[in-house]
Design a protein around this nucleic acid. Structure first.
Lengths: 235, 235
DNA sequence: TGAACTATTCTTGTATACACAACATCGGTT
DNA sequence: AACCGATGTTGTGTATACAAGAATAGTTCA
């Protein structure tokens, strides 16, 4: 009852989402200079909405704007990613603790439903579907925390980490272990065990960060000649 | 060696800060419509940088932009404020836990220094000074967590809650109890007691949220005839 | 007299134009 | 030959102009 009015939304927001999409999907890899004119032509609009979109993306950390020097996709050093996963883990843990104490019957049903949907995707061996349903699962927990602000923060960070999370599920057996972790999470939340829910969720997220770090370290070792620390613009 | 180049900063950013200042200091109370032209004239600039500033403020939640309807200062329902304090408490707790494990000698010195400065302000009975030094104290903890992303998040939320926090210190004896809580925090962090540091910091922040809620409830009861829920524009 | 429709006005959203700073290239000097 | 300075070009930052949607007021009809 809201999607009927076609586009009551600013163009700059749509552009922001499109650019975000291009960033997280790797069309604009880290370090890319985002030329306003190029983007404008590429989308067939003027520079104005492009600028607004970039400013918005900059304020959530997805691009970096340096005065008089334009926008670039930030490099996302592995260290920083670890930090972000560390915070994400804590936010999820907090959601879990609160959810265990506050979840309502209807939300319990939603959570179980999402969990069972994940099970189906796992059995089907479909990582992409699992990835998608996994988001629904986690969002159900966010909502069950009954802290709207927390849910927003968690969602925002979740989105930002999306591209890095996505790599994980291809790793051997990740989907299976993820699912069994989910089972423990559901049990703790439905059982009202606040601390358990928090610690299990924290571990569930942290392990992703660690796995990703390992992955990066491996890739780094492969790509880099012994010492190459000065990454300026792909040199 | 960087503050010499006078203003290598976008005008829209400065405007954003000015507008933010006006919002948090109550010049633009919640519910205010922010007319772009008015703001532009008020600052002596064109609408363009004003728009950019508003978009940036909107993306951090300080203003609300509805398409084709302009920007307003969001109402900040007491419920939402409680939620924000709840999250703030957890972020600070996390900073504390990490700081207790990771703090370096130089940072220990900084923390003690900030603590002692607060002591001076307390003895002088200067709430404004205490308020300021309190920020330094907390920032020292953020930094000692050695998680730059966490520190940024905590700082951002801290800023956003600033206006509400500020009211607290006028409450009878709040400065004294705040200071003794600080002492416990310092002891836990320097003692390396991670869990203690977290729980003490959480309580330190939560109590502010609760006190604020009480305050709001009191004010609400005073101002409102039995049922007045429709607050549109100061009617 | 009240309600609904229409026209006007006002504000936002987008495009275009202009100014100025940063980078690059080239020429001169030590 | 290498370094420093001047000039041109590119692209960001701001201002202005224009278009479209929303709010409002006025009018007309029941």
């Amino acid at each position: 009852m809201q999607a009927l009015t076609p586009p009551p939304v600013r163009l700059s927001e749509q552009l922001g989402e499109s650019i975000e999409e291009r960033i997280v999907t790797g069309v604009y890899p880290p370090g890319t200079r985002l030329d306003e004119q190029e983007l404008a032509e590429s989308f067939g609009v003027s520079r104005t909405p492009i600028r607004e979109a970039l400013i918005q993306l900059a304020s959530i950390g997805l691009v970096e704007i340096r005065p008089r020097r334009g926008a670039t996709v930030p490099e996302m050093a592995p260290d920083r990613l670890c930090e972000m996963f560390e915070v994400m883990a804590e936010l999820e843990a907090m959601c879990g603790r609160l959810a265990a104490r506050r979840i309502l019957p209807a939300e319990q049903a939603r959570l179980l439903e999402a969990h069972q949907a994940c099970e189906a995707a796992r059995q089907a061996g479909d990582p992409d579907l699992y990835y998608q349903l996994n988001e629904v699962f986690h969002r159900a927990i966010y909502d069950a925390s009954h802290n709207g602000f927390l849910a927003e923060q968690a969602t925002a960070l979740h989105r930002r980490l999306r591209p890095f999370r996505r790599l994980q599920l291809r790793v051997r057996n990740r989907m299976n272990t993820s699912f069994s972790e989910h089972a423990a999470i559901v049990e703790a939340i439905l059982g009202g065990d606040s601390e358990k829910a928090g610690s299990v969720l924290r571990a569930h997220v942290i392990v992703q960060g660690e796995r990703f770090t390992d992955l990066v370290a491996t890739l780094r070792q492969m790509h880099n000649p012994p010492e190459a620390e000065l990454a300026q613009a792909g040199t």
